[in-house]
Simulated assay, not measured.
Amino acid sequence: MRLILLMVLAALLSGCGYNQIQQKDEAVKAGWSEVLNQYKRRADLIPNLVNTVKGYSSHEQQVLTQVTEARARVGQVNVNADDPASLASFQQAQGELSSALQRLMVVVENYPNLKADQAFLDLQTQLEGTENRITVARGRYIQVVQDYNTYIRSFPQNLVAMVFGYKPKPNFTVEDERAIQQAPTVDFGQAPAAPQQQPPPQPAN
């Protein structure tokens, strides 16, 4: 009799979406792991990037320090993706690091020898690929969180979610979601356009 009751309960839970909630919850966890993995990949590239730039432009200490400090702040964030405040702090730290990297890119344009260095070119390629992977990973995470949240808010899954303590998960902010539609430009090889020369004035007749 007990076995029959368990089988009936399992069938009811399955029909109410319990198994699907588990699957979607695991998809969210996997998506978040990939986001962290790609951000860590970027963080691991930064020390070599800073050291390479420093070898050509040691007097650009302010920009180099900003990048290093921004990377350190990212490492200090103990992120919990289920906590909206923690996720917001993580977003802010990663945004500050992205801004610092963009300022470094501007500095690099002033050093043609650096842009021709093979080690730097290799780092450029890796950083470009990482930025693209970050964009893809974050986009997928946004989708799986939206899918999970929509599912557990729908009837009758919302009743099962309430009983077992499954709650909607925070996601990247709307502003941040728009921002990730295009990865940051990482192009150290493109020299700034030279100003157009104006034709000399014609002598008056």
Rank of each mutant, 00 (worst) to 15 (best):
V67L: 10
V67W: 06
T68Y: 02
E69K: 09
E69W: 03
E69F: 04
A70C: 11
A70F: 14
A72Y: 12
R73Y: 09
R73F: 06
R73H: 15
V74Q: 12
V74A: 12
V74L: 11
G75M: 08
G75I: 09
Q76H: 08
Q76N: 13
V77Y: 00
V77M: 01
N78E: 13
N78A: 13
V79Y: 14
V79Q: 06
V79K: 12
A81N: 13
A81F: 15
D82E: 15
D82F: 15
D83F: 14
P84H: 13
A85D: 15
S86M: 09
S86K: 13
S86T: 09
S86E: 06
S86G: 10
L87K: 03
L87N: 08
L87T: 04
F90H: 06
F90R: 06
Q91N: 15
Q92V: 07
Q92Y: 05
Q92W: 04
Q92A: 05
A93R: 00
A93S: 05
A93G: 02
Q94T: 13
Q94C: 10
G95E: 11
G95D: 04
E96H: 12
E96S: 12
L97R: 06
L97H: 08
L97I: 08
S98H: 13
S98P: 12
S98R: 15
S99K: 15
L101V: 11
L101S: 06
Q102N: 15
R103W: 07
R103V: 09
L104D: 00
L104H: 02
M105R: 05
M105S: 07
V107Q: 06
V107M: 13
V107N: 10
V108R: 00
N110H: 14
N110K: 11
N110F: 09
N110D: 04
N110W: 04
Y111S: 04
Y111E: 04
Y111H: 02
Y111N: 01
Y111R: 00
Y111A: 04
P112K: 06
N113F: 00
L114Q: 01
L114W: 04
L114C: 07
K115R: 15
K115M: 06
K115Q: 08
K115E: 12
A116F: 02
A116C: 07
A116L: 00
D117F: 08
Q118V: 14
Q118C: 09
A119I: 06
A119F: 09
A119W: 00
F120T: 02
L121C: 00
D122H: 09
D122P: 11
D122N: 13
L123Y: 00
Q124M: 05
Q124Y: 00
Q124W: 04
T125G: 00
T125M: 02
Q126G: 02
L127R: 05
E128N: 06
E128I: 00
G129T: 10
E131Q: 14
E131A: 11
E131N: 10
N132F: 10
N132P: 05
N132M: 04
N132W: 05
